[in-house]
Computed example of a mutant assay.
Amino acid sequence: MQDLVVRLVSPLVLTFVGAWAGAWAAFMSERKTQESNRRAERISAANKAIFTIRALYETYENLRQHYIDVDEIRDDPDRALRMDSPQSGMMRNIEFNFNELHFFLDHPGEVRSTVLMELLRLEREYHILLQTVEHHARADDEFGRMRSGANIVTKDEEKFDTAEKTTYSAQYSKLEATTNQMIASVDAGITRSREVYEKVQSALQQQFPGQKFLTIPFNE
């Protein structure tokens, strides 16, 4: 009787164990695939964030090269009268996709816990730059209209500039303030882009040791 029970039960046990093992293997394979896909998605999102930092940095750098550090404008006492700026609406908005970057919060660590705040701050500072450029373009346009209708008689360019500043002091003060703010924002943006990039790379190496990510060729 015992032998009969063994003969009947053994195939059932083997069948059950085989089915369980197959299901477990399928489950582990699916889990491994999901983890691999999730890792790939996070790496892709991280590279997009680095690309966005690069876009911000290059915008700041282009402004510095073409509007500030050209023709010795930066150190010119009358730089507000000489410095151009992109026209209103010409600069594009640049933003991070924070919905893809929540994985920075999945692991403990001071660097990783603050990197999202650093990215958010960098984005907000860029938005302030956009507003500053808009204000500067309007102030420059307003002062330009005043200059075109000026009735100031002098052949001395330096005296002419001084006369303009005096005659249109309110408009000039606005132009000077936005010029100084634009230069300060650009300089700070270049520095901050470098700093945030280093923090992002550090956080990513903590989370994905040995993984290669996009790099930014900062100018020296």
Rank of each mutant, 00 (worst) to 15 (best):
87 Q>I: 13
54 R>S: 08
166 T>C: 11
152 I>K: 00
90 M>S: 14
174 K>T: 11
60 Y>S: 04
214 L>T: 13
188 A>I: 01
37 N>L: 15
181 Q>E: 15
83 M>L: 07
184 A>M: 13
65 Q>K: 11
100 E>Q: 04
9 V>G: 09
220 E>D: 14
199 K>H: 11
145 R>N: 14
4 L>D: 12
39 R>P: 12
90 M>K: 14
71 D>I: 04
135 H>R: 10
217 P>K: 05
18 G>R: 06
82 R>Q: 11
138 R>Q: 12
56 L>F: 14
31 R>I: 07
175 L>Q: 07
109 G>H: 11
92 R>G: 04
178 T>P: 05
123 E>P: 01
212 K>T: 10
47 N>S: 09
138 R>F: 11
208 F>D: 00
182 M>G: 04
181 Q>W: 02
60 Y>K: 09
13 V>E: 03
62 N>H: 12
32 K>P: 03
40 A>D: 14
74 R>Q: 00
160 F>M: 09
188 A>K: 10
30 E>N: 14
118 E>W: 01
219 N>Y: 13
168 Y>D: 03
71 D>C: 10
164 E>N: 15
107 H>A: 13
135 H>G: 00
8 L>I: 12
28 M>D: 12
167 T>C: 01
36 S>W: 01
124 R>S: 03
73 I>E: 00
117 M>H: 11
35 E>P: 02
21 A>M: 05
158 E>M: 00
84 D>N: 15
46 A>L: 12
1 M>T: 08
206 Q>I: 07
84 D>Q: 11
92 R>M: 06
117 M>F: 14
52 T>A: 01
150 A>I: 07
208 F>C: 00
129 L>R: 06
85 S>Y: 01
2 Q>V: 04
14 L>V: 11
121 R>G: 09
180 N>A: 09
144 G>M: 02
137 A>C: 09
29 S>A: 15
7 R>W: 02
22 G>P: 10
57 Y>H: 00
183 I>Q: 09
18 G>Y: 03
71 D>Y: 11
140 D>G: 07
184 A>T: 11
87 Q>N: 15
159 K>S: 13
140 D>M: 06
193 S>E: 09
164 E>V: 15
70 V>Y: 06
29 S>M: 10
97 N>R: 10
48 K>R: 15
186 V>E: 10
164 E>K: 15
146 M>I: 02
181 Q>T: 05
215 T>H: 11
62 N>Y: 07
190 I>H: 07
216 I>D: 09
122 L>K: 02
80 A>T: 02
154 T>V: 07
210 G>T: 10
219 N>C: 08
97 N>P: 08
202 S>K: 06
42 R>H: 02
130 L>H: 05
70 V>R: 12
85 S>A: 15
128 I>N: 00
188 A>T: 01
190 I>K: 06
152 I>N: 06
55 A>D: 06
155 K>R: 14
37 N>T: 12
154 T>N: 03
54 R>F: 13
181 Q>C: 07
74 R>W: 05
3 D>T: 04
14 L>K: 13
214 L>W: 13
51 F>I: 04
201 Q>H: 03
171 Q>W: 05
130 L>I: 09
89 G>I: 01
92 R>H: 05
